[in-house]
Nucleic acid binder design. Structure first.
Ligand SMILES: [Mn+2]
Ligand SMILES: [Mn+2]
Ligand SMILES: [Mn+2]
Ligand SMILES: [Mn+2]
Lengths: 219, 219
DNA sequence: TTATATTTTTAGATAAGTCTAAATTTGAAT
DNA sequence: ATTCAAATTTAGACTTATCTAAAAATATAA
């Protein structure tokens, strides 16, 4: 059984690898985990010895299949627990991440599978991120940032790129939630801000907000 | 924040102290935790230094108020999670203990309080053990082992003294559950076994079974 | 291409929790 | 009161995960 620490390393490497094609660098892992680079360097050797990652000195690391399986399972649990917290215990979507960081390490396939059924087999977590199935498959939605839409186009909110509490609370304040329809009324070249219509209201969204909001257009 | 390890020591000391008036001995803790006595001895010094227990060499230890608070909170969480697993996820009462041993360490008062509400503020766990309230008060039921009943008397099953999987499965097999009425028909002095009536059926229970079954008599 | 900056690794320490083996203390039994 | 067994503690060691400081490798930039 992987320790909490090892599980966190693997999950972090998995997530960093989605961004950087060549794998996860020591420094990136260090920053993501809040652990010093020297410590990470040490740990990478151990993970390599356990054949959970492939590691060559001074090079970015990649997960082996075994490592990926563990990482994806942790993510599966994280996201299912987030759904539980929001759907059943009425937490808000900006309150659940840290709790899920703890719950994701509870070690029981039976528990997570039953939880999944209890929640009616959700496909996405409260932030729109896909929930891996029990075989580790992840069905990613074909979504794009709001910045891809042209004036006059519209889409439905499917997720967030930035899931910081600040951004989530901002969206709540603007009454923007997953599933909402958003129509682009006008794009201002000056600061790339957009005037949009959503939930019957007209509002202005900064470029930064638009970059961090994912929508699905009817194709 | 107490580590998982410290939490487990405190919980164990609390539970052992319910049985032995003078406190918990090194050996008893060692056996309960599956940790060598030498290790326990070392740890007791540390817990004393943190003022979570009072410890004098070669003497049984007792919890301080701070130590008791932590222990009771862990027990509260353990029992609430057990209710969740049985009531919401349909686990059987003999399947939940090990999972609760993990879940009890999830650190969030908000989570446990919401969980409690979600479960409709249960007062007892699936084994009949009382769930401490958020102030650490434990309302113990005035129950007695089935061996206390005389021939002709009856009571309602309120709990088990032995909550091993084997015993719980035995009770399931006999269709004996919390809340069932049990009437003592006859007590055999030879082996102290009893003939009882419960759930419309007559059956024979060994003295050992009767000692481990708690009932409440209408008084 | 050489110098500089950044990244990564190594070396040496530390803390928590555990173990085995040996020493000590306690308590029970002659 | 002495002896012996059981319980407990001490000593020394190990593992995991972490740190700081220093060295080495790589990448960048003049
Ligand atoms: Mn999260
Ligand atoms: Mn999420
Ligand atoms: Mn239990
Ligand atoms: Mn229980």
């Amino acid at each position: 059984m992987a320790s909490f620490t090892v599980e966190n390393y693997l999950k972090t490497i998995f997530q960093l690898s989605l961004k950087a094609e060549n794998g996860a660098s020591t420094n990136a892992i260090s920053e993501a985990l809040g652990t010093k680079a020297a410590t990470v360097s040490d740990m990478l050797k151990k993970l390599d010895a356990q054949e959970l990652i492939t590691y060559k000195k001074y090079q970015a690391v990649k997960l082996t299949n075994a490592g990926r399986d563990i990482a994806v399972n942790i993510i599966r649990k994280h996201r299912l627990w987030e759904v539980f917290l929001v759907e059943k215990l009425d937490f808000k979507w900006d309150e659940v991440h840290d709790l899920a960081e703890e719950l994701e390490h509870i070690d029981s396939a039976e528990l997570v599978n039953r939880l999944e059924g209890f929640l009616n087999n959700p496909k996405f977590d409260p932030h729109g991120d896909p929930i891996p199935d029990r075989d580790g498959n992840i069905h990613r939605l074909n979504q794009s940032p709001l910045t891809e839409l042209k004036s006059g186009e519209s889409g439905y909110v499917t997720g967030v790129k930035d899931s910081s509490r600040e951004f989530l609370q901002f969206l709540d304040a603007q009454n923007i939630h997953l599933g909402n329809k958003i129509e682009i009324v006008e794009i201002f070249e000056y600061d790339k801000s957009r005037t949009v219509i959503t939930g019957g209201k007209t509002l202005s969204l900064s470029n930064q907000v638009c970059k961090n909001l994912y929508v699905k257009t009817e194709n």
